Amino acid sequence: MPHAPAPKLPAVSEARRLAALSSFDILDTEKESAYEDIVRIASYVCRAPISVVNLIDADRQWFKAEVGLGVRETPLDTSICAHAILEHDLLVIPDTTQDPRFAANPLVTGEPGLRFYAGALLKTADGLPLGTVCVLDTQPRTLDDDQIDTLRRLARQVMAQMELRRMLRQSQRRGDHLSRLLATAGHDLKAPLRSALYAMSKVRSGVSGEHAARLDDARTDLLSADQQLSRLLASTHADIAGGDAELGPVVLHEVFDALSSTWTRAAQRKRVALTIGRTGAIVRGHPLLLETVLGNALSNAVKYTPGGGAVTMLARSGDGKITIDIQDNGCGIPAEKVEELFSAFRQADPQAEGLGLGLWLIRQSAAAMHAEVEIHPGATGGTIFRLSLDAA
């Protein structure tokens, strides 16, 4: 059977994914030590000769950092990572020659003769896949649970680095709120840095020689970054005071359709029944901010709902308002924890994927639209997320 490239996401989702990737201004940038450290750590921890921070562009895969390849990009039609971004979380291929998607891939049948692949997704706060942190080998193999956990943690660290750089660029362009952005960016990096340090400490006990020395060097660099961020946070104040957005009529079903194309696939992978109701409502808001609010709320609902559960999103009108409810039957949020989780970089489950930005982004985006956000426990468990906007 001849080799076939990975299928693309639906057109709407792919356009949103590429727009999100473009917003980070990372493609074709120079090498940076923070990303180089990440691929070296991934390579050491997973005992893999090849490790890559990989971003999937429209027609190529581009490497922000790599170990063992010696190139910065390759065509998309032979990309294994292009298959990985179709997954919800992680793709592991123990033997590429035994997988019909990859058995005829020129990177498998020819040089460098890839036989093993494992990639953890790089995802935005609202779930758009941008690429992977991946490790590869020329021998069939697998990873243990600690190695898989470390790969996921390193993927979160890459996203934290990307978010920091984007925040700083936005601050420089606007010339305002620098302290706010630096403070939130610092919080963004603290948790992933400590996760990486913890993972490295676990692995360090089992290695020696040159690998141990390199791990020690990388750990020293991360400790230095952690200390610098502590000083940064001590000298700034996270006084969030977002401005108003330019508001206008938004056709709600267009936003619902875009979210359906993104989250139906993710829900199916988790065996979660996702229902998004039809609506003819028009609200006063901002389309991108509204999609951010609802996308992050759906992301949380799907993430925290177990397989076999259900998530619904429905809109209703009354008293000049449009109210959108997103209800799940997941783990729920204790009432006393709700306000805390609206802070930046907080998660209901600290071990869950993501950066803990979802509810913070929701509150900031909703405030810019003069919308109201509430979270309530469901009558039979789970959570009800409620957004109220003015009807247009």
Rank of each mutant, 00 (worst) to 15 (best):
M167N: 09
M167V: 04
L168E: 11
L168C: 05
R169T: 12
R169K: 12
R169W: 09
Q170A: 11
Q170L: 13
Q170K: 04
S171E: 13
S171M: 12
S171H: 06
Q172M: 07
Q172I: 12
R173H: 12
G175S: 06
G175P: 07
G175E: 06
D176E: 12
D176G: 06
H177Y: 12
H177A: 15
H177R: 11
L178Y: 02
L178N: 07
S179I: 04
S179A: 15
S179E: 15
R180S: 13
R180L: 14
R180Y: 12
R180F: 11
L181T: 04
L181Y: 03
L182Y: 03
L182M: 09
A183K: 09
A183E: 01
A185K: 00
A185Q: 02
A185I: 02
G186Y: 02
H187Q: 12
H187W: 15
H187T: 00
H187M: 08
H187F: 15
D188T: 15
D188I: 05
D188H: 08
L189P: 00
L189K: 05
L189C: 05
K190D: 09
K190I: 08
K190Q: 13
A191W: 05
A191G: 12
A191P: 03
A191N: 06
A191M: 03
P192F: 00
P192W: 01
P192G: 05
P192D: 05
P192V: 03
L193K: 04
R194W: 07
R194C: 06
R194I: 03
S195N: 10
S195K: 04
S195P: 00
A196S: 15
A196P: 05
L197S: 02
L197G: 01
A199N: 05
A199D: 12
A199P: 01
M200R: 02
M200A: 12
M200Y: 04
S201C: 03
S201F: 09
S201W: 11
S201T: 13
S201L: 13
K202N: 14
K202Q: 15
K202P: 00
K202L: 15
V203T: 13
R204D: 09
R204N: 09
S205P: 00
S205R: 10
S205H: 12
G206H: 12
G206V: 01
G206D: 10
G206W: 00
V207S: 05
V207N: 06
S208I: 08
S208D: 07
G209K: 02
G209Y: 03
E210L: 03
E210D: 13
H211M: 11
H211W: 14
H211Q: 11
A212V: 02
A212I: 08
A212R: 14
A213K: 09
R214K: 10
L215R: 01
L215T: 02
L215P: 04
L215W: 02
D216K: 04
D217Y: 05
D217W: 01
D217T: 11
D217A: 14
A218L: 15
A218T: 02
R219A: 15
R219F: 11
T220S: 05
T220F: 01
T220H: 01
T220C: 03
D221Q: 14
D221P: 02
D221Y: 04
D221A: 15
L222Y: 03
L222F: 08
